[in-house]
């Protein structure tokens, strides 16, 4: 006798293209958790999902856009923000969310990041910082810590370069909402993403995550569970701390919280006001 077992649906499944399952992510990866955060933030806000546009660049994190059941776009590597700017300026009614990796956003796309922050265009950028280029197999990037090992900064030397602190970068470039959480701070990070979406201005939210397959293995940081447990242990929640004090040291202390929440005229709003005046 076979009894039909009721299939439990994930509460966020309504936002996801289930026909694209399984996800491409490795086990232990943080990107799926972040996808969940974005879905929950949209759900909690109750916004019209058809007006939400999810954009990403190339990378493991970049694959996120393709799982959302709305208008989604996978740009070339590094150009998610530039695409998103065109969307938002051409149609300010849309809710534009960029989800992409640290390499995509801070290396090849770093110029677009700082200039979008400077312009203060209303969009929410969620950047998953897994300290390396995951998609291509784990090479060092602009967030890889000094002397860490990757496929292109192998032992015995390690990474000769120094890393960007993305919170400081976004804040000093002019972003009006800046936060950092780790992948284990799901509730808090989701709340920050909600605030970012609601904010009329550029919001930058860094989610420090784990890439056990590449970065974890090269640096003997353990499996996905161990890496996430570590993130919880070293997280130091300091809401309201000046962004220039939001230090990130993987080994010892990852300062988390909301660091910037300021008001500044937003690009598309300024444009709209100017047009109104022009028309008289």
């Amino acid at each position: 006798m076979t009894e039909s077992v009721p299939v439990l649906k994930h509460p966020m499944a309504k936002y996801i293209r289930e026909d694209r399952q399984p996800w491409i992510y490795c086990s232990g990866c943080s990107v799926g958790i972040v996808t969940g955060m974005v879905a929950r933030a949209i759900d909690n806000l109750g916004i019209d999902f058809s007006k939400v546009v999810v954009v990403s660049g190339i990378g493991c994190t970049g694959r996120t856009s393709g799982y959302f059941k709305t208008g989604t776009y996978y740009t070339t590597h590094g150009r998610a923000i530039a695409f998103a700017e065109g969307v938002k300026i051409a149609n300010p009614e849309l809710e534009v969310i960029v989800v992409s990796g640290d390499g995509d956003i801070a290396a090849i796309g770093g110029n677009h990041l700082i200039h979008a922050c400077r312009r203060n265009i209303d969009m929410t950028i969620v950047c998953v910082n897994n300290f390396n280029y995951g998609m291509t197999g784990g090479q060092f990037g602009p967030t890889t810590e000094h002397l860490r090992y990757t496929q292109t900064s192998p032992p015995p030397i390690g990474n000769v370069e120094h890393s960007f602190n993305l919170v400081k970068l976004a804040a000093s470039s002019g972003a009006t909402f800046v936060a950092r959480w780790t992948a284990v701070h799901v509730r808090r990070a989701t709340k920050s993403i909600e605030k970012g979406i609601e904010k009329k201005g550029l919001s930058f939210i860094e989610i420090v995550g784990a890439c056990p397959t590449a970065y974890g293995r090269m640096n003997r940081l353990g499996d996905g569970v161990a890496m996430h447990r570590h993130l919880l242990e070293v997280a130091d929640i300091q809401n309201g701390l000046p962004p220039h004090e939001a230090e990130l040291d993987y080994e010892t202390r990852i300062v988390c919280g909301e660091f910037v929440d300021v008001e500044k005229p937003e690009y598309t709003a300024v444009l709209r006001e100017a047009y109104k005046k022009l028309r008289g």
Partner: peptide
Amino acid sequence: YEDEIASITSVIGASWT
């Protein structure tokens, strides 16, 4: 924009609206 890469990519974005 800050460069031509952003310029054309934003044009692609605008076109999709």
